[in-house]
């Protein structure tokens, strides 16, 4: 069996795929690549199924050594990539051989880089997924982030990948400027005053240092809640409601003016008012914001959210047909 050597794990690199679904009602969040588009496209480039295991690096990427002939592709964050210390193109399938070393320099924009290797990162499937959920230590590689000097199993590289296959510029995400996050307002937005909701939608929020796969805490605006009589079963904080399930991408405000966007590894339910939900397509975008970046919430209806999801599917198919040429 072939393996991928991890010379350096980077800051926070985990094995992810497209997620672990079907267990949310048991309190199990989906995990999976935070920027789904980049992860799926990386797999396409190297000829893997869309849902094969990839590596998700955060801020500081890993250093990886290959032990046999493979295709590798890096997508996601804008970061200089090197092979044996020579620059190589991102969003491109690159042929590598035993002893070749893939490395990363400092990120220029974005937050998370994805590394797909032909054959996929072949860690054991747990509850239907190879994704790592570090909070409970399950899935992925031993349920944790990668560390220096270890090895990952690779699957058999039998896909249709082609050296030099490239994703055109116009099909790569734009990671510059304020991240515009389309958001369906609700389920508990009734807890905000009119001014509170206007402030929520009108503020350029700044990503704080508390921003990871669980959630992103934001700062910069003021959120006023309406007066109310505390309902039976709800906590005393104005932001408390009777417990409910939290949609992935939902935004809660636990006692104060700092909204938290719940993401792939988040708690699945609880007693905080969720004032909106970032649509699935734009969770790829927030996943590429880093501490200090700005985000805005733009109110959209459910039809717009569903149309955006259809658009992304079409975009992914466009990439597939461009790569196949």
């Amino acid at each position: 069996m072939s393996e991928l050597r991890v010379r350096a794990g980077g800051l926070y690199t985990t094995v992810q795929d497209t997620g672990r679904f079907g267990h949310y009602h048991m309190g199990m969040p989906p995990s999976g690549a935070m920027d789904t588009y980049s992860a799926v496209v990386a797999n396409m480039l190297v000829g893997n199924p869309d849902g094969a295991g990839v590596l998700e690096g955060t801020y500081v990427g890993p250093t990886l050594e290959f032990t046999d002939d493979r295709l590798v592709a890096v997508t996601g964050a804008d970061v200089p990539v090197t092979l044996n210390d020579e620059p190589v193109e991102p969003w491109t399938a690159i042929r590598v051989r035993s002893g070749d070393v893939l490395g990363f320099a400092m990120i220029r924009a974005g937050c998370r880089a994805y590394v797909a290797v032909s054959g996929g990162i072949d860690v054991p499937v747990y509850l239907g997924s190879r994704s790592t959920y570090t909070l409970t230590g399950i899935g992925g590689h031993e349920g944790r982030k990668l560390v220096d000097d270890e090895s990952l199993p690779l699957g058999a590289a039998e896909g249709p990948g082609r050296d030099g296959a490239v994703v055109p510029e116009d099909l790569r995400p734009d990671l510059t400027g304020t991240a515009e996050l389309r958001t369906v307002v609700g389920l508990c937005s009734y807890r905000l005053t009119e001014g509170g909701l206007a402030s929520f939608l009108g503020t350029d929020w700044k990503v704080t240092k508390d921003a990871d796969r669980v959630g992103y805490r934001l700062r910069g605006g003021k959120l006023d809640f309406t007066e109310r009589e505390q309902p039976f079963g709800a906590g005393s904080d104005p932001a408390n409601v009777v417990d409910l399930g939290y949609p992935v991408g939902s935004i809660q405000v636990p006692g104060g003016d700092e909204p938290i966007v719940l993401l792939n590894d988040a708690v699945t339910g609880g007693g905080y008012a969720t004032i909106g939900t970032v649509i699935s397509v734009d969770r790829d975008r927030i996943a590429q914001t880093k501490t200090g970046d700005a985000v805005r919430f733009n109110s959209v209806d459910l039809d717009t959210a569903l149309a955006a999801r259809r658009d992304r599917r079409e975009r992914i198919e466009r990439v597939r047909s461009r790569i196949a040429r």
Binding site: L11, Y59, V60, M106, K209, K290, T291, G292
Partner: peptide, 9 residues
């Protein structure tokens, strides 16, 4: 010497 990641210093 440059910061390799964002955060609080």
């Amino acid at each position: 010497i440059k910061a390799q990641m964002p955060g609080v210093f």
